[in-house]
Amino acid sequence: MSRRESLSLDEFALAARRQAPAGDDHRRFNNLEAHRGLDSPLHGPRDPRQEARKALRRMKRERVKGETCFVNVNLDRPTKRRLKLASFNAETSMQAIMEQAILKYLDDLGL
């Protein structure tokens, strides 16, 4: 197809929209939509290994929630080289040096 040719909407097949049932069936429909994927005769049993992985991931997320935050800092090349050399000489990580520098700066400001 060349650039000048274009497709019209009539050339695409569209699926019909799903209609929500009325009355009491509407509540049942909403209940099924809210619990989609849970153990049910419609969807079958869930994989226990996958459930365990999700639970572990949730537990780890809760444990580290609020503990650490990350900050990105743009450094020019000479400053980055100096920081890398300082971390090598002090046998610490660049992150530890940055944390100490930020804490010292904030303490000096009295914040």
Rank of each mutant, 00 (worst) to 15 (best):
S2Q: 08
R3F: 13
R4P: 01
R4N: 09
R4F: 14
L7N: 13
L7V: 12
D10F: 11
L14M: 12
R17K: 14
Q19T: 15
A20W: 11
A20L: 13
A20F: 06
P21H: 08
P21A: 10
P21I: 04
G23R: 11
G23D: 11
G23I: 07
D24L: 14
D25C: 07
H26G: 05
H26T: 05
F29T: 01
R36G: 01
L38R: 08
D39R: 06
S40V: 01
H43M: 08
G44E: 03
G44H: 00
P45A: 07
R46I: 00
P48W: 00
P48G: 00
R49K: 12
Q50P: 00
R53C: 02
K54G: 08
A55P: 02
L56N: 06
L56Q: 09
L56P: 00
R58N: 11
K60I: 11
R61S: 12
V64H: 04
V64R: 10
E67T: 09
E67L: 14
C69Y: 08
N72R: 06
N74F: 02
D76M: 03
D76N: 12
R77L: 07
P78K: 12
T79H: 03
K80I: 04
R81M: 10
L85Q: 15
L85H: 08
S87Y: 01
S87C: 07
S93V: 04
M94K: 01
A96M: 09
A96Q: 14
A96T: 13
I97F: 04
M98Y: 00
E99N: 08
E99I: 12
A101E: 06
L103D: 12
Y105E: 14
Y105V: 09
D107I: 03
D108E: 15
G110V: 01
